[in-house]
């Protein structure tokens, strides 16, 4: 539900980071906040509970500059991953234009990834959105833990688990060090803006 202001030639869209509890959604936004100072518009707001778990959401507003003659703003959100915050997750997802699904590469989180992806599909569906059609990027996070000898799933296995049919662009990442974080966001922005461009056809407005 992006907002497109024809007069001011501004577009504002919403990208939501989704995924199971503790998979690294907030860490993604923290890294973006630290590393993209120029594009960040204001402060990052995190509403947390005990142990830095997200309670309501994280919010990070960014200003991406002019794209096809239009000022593009994006609001990045994360949802709380903990199972019991189901309705908050749905509320935060409202009006979403693009989704980054962050999956946890740890072996022990395999089922949690799948359940969360199913939860995403269900919540999108309740807003009349289709997981196959919405701009979606999958991130396999915590790859660094493999080097530490922890039981981590292979990217191939995760692709098979989560992306066998979705066939969404996917990236390996380590949100603590920032590896793959920028790429994930860039790809999601690209897909989101392409979709919005198709919807609003804004560059044509230039001639009119």
């Amino acid at each position: 539900m992006a907002i497109f202001n024809i007069k001011k030639r501004e577009i504002e869209c919403k990208v939501v980071y989704y995924g199971p509890g503790r998979c690294g959604k907030t860490t993604n936004l923290e890294y973006i906040f630290k590393s993209y100072k120029k594009q960040v518009e204001g402060e990052m707001v995190s509403i947390n509970t005990e142990g830095d778990r997200t309670l309501f959401f994280d919010f990070l507003p960014m200003e991406l500059g002019k794209i096809k003659g239009c000022d593009v703003r994006v609001q990045l959100f994360t949802v709380p991953g903990q199972v019991q915050y189901s309705s908050t997750r749905k509320l935060v997802l409202k009006g979403v234009d693009g989704v980054v699904f962050v999956a946890d590469s740890l072996d022990v989180r395999r089922e949690k990834n799948m359940t969360s992806l199913k939860d995403l599909q269900k919540n999108l569906k309740e807003y009349g959105l289709n997981i196959f059609k919405i701009p979606l990027v999958i991130q396999y996070n915590k790859r660094d833990l493999q080097d530490e000898g922890l039981p981590v799933m292979s990217v191939e296995k995760m692709e098979k688990d989560l992306n066998r049919q979705l066939k969404a662009p996917s990236f390996a990442a380590s949100a603590v060090s920032g590896d793959g974080v920028g790429k994930t966001l860039q790809e999601c922005m690209k897909l989101t803006l392409q979709a919005l461009h198709r919807q609003f056809n804004w560059s044509k407005e230039d001639n009119g």
Binding site: V45, T49, E50, F59, Q75, Y85, L91, G95
Partner: peptide, 25 residues
């Protein structure tokens, strides 16, 4: 401790203003 943390603690005025703004679509 995690399980018993309040699920709807009272937020600051600042946060409430933000919530209002972000969720009045």
């Amino acid at each position: 401790v995690v399980a018993s943390a309040p699920t709807t603690p009272e937020m600051s005025e600042h946060v409430n203003v933000l919530i209002k703004k972000l969720f009045s679509f």
